[in-house]
Nucleic acid binder design. Structure first.
Lengths: 355, 355
DNA sequence: TTGTAAGCGTTATCAG
DNA sequence: CTGATAACGCTTACAA
């Protein structure tokens, strides 16, 4: 490994000079700067980020902690964040956790947070309060925090608005008996296990769109189902077997995996999409464009999501919260957690092509 | 942040004692051990891994560098690696790069390799030699290195064997005019840009299975196509438009995205799968089970893949190569890069259900 | 059995 | 303008 000292020796200057020059300090003689730059170049020097964060508390790396990794969604976000961060001269490292809640907390505390200036956190089962206790003061942006009194800045998917647009679309194409697939019964007493918050907001969006059109959303039309292919496939088959499909002409699915599973489950039972039932999903995963039939969906704009998350995070990193008494006057409002909503687009495809 | 000193102060011992005790050194009095443990617990102490790797050169973190992230494959591998590493008491961080070749090299050099004891590297366009120059001596396991003279330990997908099994399966179900979709013309002069090595081996596997059955694989049956949904869809449409589909009754697709795109492209043109053309993919992504028709594929066992990669890496970390003259006798053979092949399973599904 | 002290590679302070 | 020097939090001889 080539260090600052190696460069210094070769350039005939001191280590501190190399450090300054390489970080763009302007007060050195052109001659010195050139020598240092060349020496660094020739040796293939790259600053040691562990040493840098140890000493300076900053190293230009941002951590992305993503939970529940088998699904593609978080990774699309991570990819978008990586690209967006790159454009701002920042690096990212991603940590995925597939273990227990304790494992998630420990690895977040022990690994991700230690190597970076700030964190973007896409949670599964850990609550903001727990995280706050473990991660301490490191700047952090939360994904999908719908808490009434948020503890962190957050970016959220447009669950309410997206569901609203989706259901309006179902109504537009002539659906009149609309059901929702993928609602989870809220687990009483337990901490929100991730998607009940989504559920609530998406359900509310559905209800709102239906109400606009003079319809209601009876609880019998809200069909519980885990958010994965297989569960949705089985649920759709069950619907068909119970002859409920004739009572439904439009189905809003809580996410695209559920929509894909449902399409497949209906196919298993000879129910035609969209002729018998129109289906729309949520998320905008690439596969929905290539299924038969292709599946309409609410496509989340992950580039926009990433941009907003980084805007929030970078601001927190550059202007750390005036903790406690310092600058007390407007610190309260500046420190109030902000919440941004990502953009989305309605993708009209075959699964809702009834008119 | 709570440090070793904080714990030491609270426990009434020195920092070094805390360090020893917490890492399990057995030579301390039970009493001391208990005090230290309790102090650490009470303060919520977690060792600073940046400091640890700086001083000790080891921190129990392994880096996973994954390139070309829009596809789900690398992330399935990363998820499997994370789980497997967790079981061995190791942490992982993932770095994904979506930028240029230079960007990939730089971020690998500057970020991933600095925080960890070793690397698992799933490359796109960077050659092993380039990496070796940039990453230096850090232990590293390469994914999918098919070089004739490998520089690193590697785990590879069973491209030859899998393609062989896939084509045998097509033959088994009665296909006699088999084509391959997704072959890339080798780019003469340029460094392998990732998948030509796959291509070659998968093609060879196809050829081998066909030869066994007394068939050949004419170059007109090898259809070039980028490995993504859209390109494959267009390619399938082109096949149909050129009436080539009647000349084909079985299609081996280089990966599942290509297979899904092809199924969709044939659907666009009214060509039935599997009745007109049987289709089989490669990789085993979850979606292939839920398309209409579901798609047969060669499912790579990523748990096995991860296990093998970590076996190789951990051995290199624990027994660094006897570089140069030290222990020269058998170091040569011990240092010879090893290559392991991951397990796989043939998934028989609707897209090849002709008998 | 425990503590002291010297770094790991970097940055920040302060002289020169 | 440039260079010592002292940390950052940890590990590890070595001394006590």
């Amino acid at each position: 490994m080539v260090t600052l000292r190696d460069v210094a020796t070769r350039a005939g200057v001191s280590a501190s000079t190399v450090s300054y020059v390489l970080r763009g300090d302007a007060r050195f003689q052109p001659d010195t700067v050139a020598r240092v730059r060349r020496a660094a170049e020739e040796l293939g020097y790259a600053a040691n980020l562990s040493a840098r964060i140890l000493k300076a508390g900053r190293n230009g790396v941002i951590g992305v902690a993503v939970y529940g990794l088998s699904i593609c969604q978080p990774m699309r976000l991570a990819a978008a964040l990586t690209r967006e961060a790159g454009e701002r001269g920042l690096n990212t490292i991603v940590q995925q956790t597939v273990n227990s809640r304790e494992g998630e907390l420990r690895s977040l505390e022990q690994v991700t947070s230690q190597f970076c200036d700030g964190l973007i956190f896409s949670p599964s089962s850990v609550s903001p309060a727990e995280i706050k206790a473990h991660v301490g003061t490191k700047p952090m942006v939360w994904c999908e925090d719908f808490a009434a009194e948020p503890l962190f800045d957050a970016v959220v998917t447009p669950s309410f608005e997206g569901a609203q647009v989706a259901v309006r679309h179902l109504l537009d194409v002539g659906c009149r008996r609309i059901a929702v697939l993928g609602a989870n019964p809220p687990k009483s007493g337990l901490a929100d296990s991730g998607n009940t918050a989504f559920c609530d907001r998406r359900l509310a969006g559905c209800g709102s769109a239906l109400a606009e059109a003079g319809f209601s959303l009876p609880s019998t039309s809200i069909i519980p189902c885990p958010w994965d292919y297989e569960a949705a496939r089985l649920a759709a088959r069950r619907l068909a077997d119970a002859r409920l499909d004739t009572a439904i002409d439009g189905l809003f699915c809580m996410n695209d995996a559920v929509a894909m599973g449902a399409v497949r489950g209906f196919a298993d039972r000879g129910i035609r999409v969209p002729e018998d039932v129109a289906i729309i999903g949520f998320d905008g995963i690439a596969e929905t464009a290539y299924t038969v039939p292709s599946i309409s969906t609410i496509a989340i704009d992950y580039d926009d999501y990433a941009r907003k998350a980084l805007d929030l995070l970078v601001e927190r990193i550059d202007h750390p919260a005036a903790a406690g008494a310092v600058g007390a006057t407007d610190s309260a409002e500046r420190d109030a957690p902000r919440r941004l909503v990502a953009d989305f687009t309605l993708m009209r495809r075959e699964s809702t092509a009834r008119r």
